[in-house]
Write a protein that binds this DNA or RNA. Structure first.
Length: 164
DNA sequence: GCCAACGTTGGC
DNA sequence: GCCAACGTTGGC
């Protein structure tokens, strides 16, 4: 496959902080982790085909209080097989996925910054410029979502954070 | 706790 | 291939 020449892109990754939070990442070795456990084909396709090293990610805390974008990550390794699917002891074990024929993908991410003031869902919903943002749409379930440059910048503005 | 939205499964 | 049943996600 020919190397892509497109510029780094922007994404939003969801996580339930009870399972894995931005503070967990801040404490991790080199503030880096593999983003495992994605078990949705559309999200898998983004990880496999589109997420590139250097891409930046808004980290969203779901299923918690407060709901918020809590910081940013950088992709440091592109898609590769999610080996947690092979292990019956893992929560996201999938017997259909094997080392010989892996189904699920993960990427590695490193913390860029934890927002001192998270951009809460209420703040995001209140900004008319974010009307089309995927994570704010009713019924949005996709855990890996593309984000536009405008959305990326507006989120930083709302968080009072420097775009790094 | 409720429930709408969405994805997956499996009978036919 | 259709679609009903079921399970999960995730905001409220």
């Amino acid at each position: 496959m020919a190397p892509s020449t497109s510029p780094p892109r922007h994404w939003l990754f969801k996580t339930e902080p009870d399972a894995y939070s931005i503070d967990d990442l801040a404490r991790a070795l080199r503030q880096t982790t593999c983003w495992d456990g994605v078990r949705n084909y559309q999200a898998r396709n983004f990880l496999r085909d589109d997420v590139q090293v250097g891409d930046r990610v808004l980290l969203y805390h779901s299923n918690c209080d407060p709901l918020a974008i809590v910081g940013t990550l950088r992709v440091v390794r592109a898609g590769y097989p999610d080996h947690t699917a092979f292990d019956p002891r893992e929560q996201h074990y999938d017997p259909k996925s094997t080392p010989e024929a892996p189904i699920w993908q993960m990427v590695d991410v490193r913390l860029i910054q934890k927002f001192a003031r998270p951009a809460t869902r209420a703040m995001l919903l209140a900004d008319p410029r974010l009307k089309a943002m995927a994570v704010l749409q009713r019924g949005s379930r996709l855990s890996i979502q593309p984000v536009t440059v405008d959305e990326w910048q507006i989120v930083h503005e709302l968080a009072g954070a420097t775009d790094r």
